[in-house]
């Protein structure tokens, strides 16, 4: 899209300003990198867990991800959403499913990483304050477990926080990247 009559030095200067502005914006961006370990469980009948990941400030819930059997016919997979009891109580029961950008299929055992940036929703709309990152997992013919990690928003310093589940969740990591 280069126009032959454009003055090159001006273009360069403009780009320099834009990239400086962008650089500044990026420097201010706060990023949450969340890693969730779904443990491999050696049982005869294994089903991948339903997992809800949210930020909580008192009674305010910001959903980050909900993994459930989204693919089942006629929304049948929603029948077990209530088994993530605390999430269901605090948020899930008031929602319509599926939720764009939040609900997704269940995940296999292993470590799953999610990254959220303050430039995008939902973090761009997150009011400052003290939060809990909460991860709740419930497994068909298995157990239920909830793990939470406190942090403050917006971020002040780079930090790696972690908590660990004992049965349905392995290590949950929260990397704060101001």
């Amino acid at each position: 899209m280069e126009k032959p009559n454009m003055k090159k030095p001006a273009v360069k200067k403009l780009w320099l300003m834009v990239s400086m502005a962008l650089g500044a914006a990026f420097a201010q961006a706060d990023t949450l990198e969340i890693s969730i370990e779904i443990p491999r469980i050696d049982v005869a009948e294994y089903h991948r867990p339903y997992v809800a990941i949210w930020l909580q400030q008192q009674s305010n819930v910001t959903n980050l991800a909900v993994w459930y059997d989204v693919g089942m016919k006629e929304g049948k997979g929603q029948e077990w959403l209530k088994d993530m009891r605390q999430w269901w109580r605090r948020s899930g029961r008031a929602l319509e499913f599926p939720i764009d950008g939040v609900t997704a299929a269940t995940r296999a055992p292993g470590i799953h990483t999610l990254t959220f940036d303050s430039a995008d929703k939902p973090l761009s709309e997150l009011p400052p304050g003290d939060y809990q990152l909460v991860v709740e997992a419930a497994r068909e013919v298995g157990g239920r477990e909830m793990v939470s990690i406190p942090f403050s928003w917006p971020l002040s310093e780079a930090q790696t926080l972690e908590a660990s589940g004992e049965t349905e969740l392995g290590r949950v990591g929260l990397q704060l990247k101001p």
Binding site: E74, Q78, L81
Partner: peptide, 8 residues
């Protein structure tokens, strides 16, 4: 007493 899903 607490149910989820469509028409449970």
């Amino acid at each position: 007493t607490v149910l989820s899903g469509e028409e449970p």
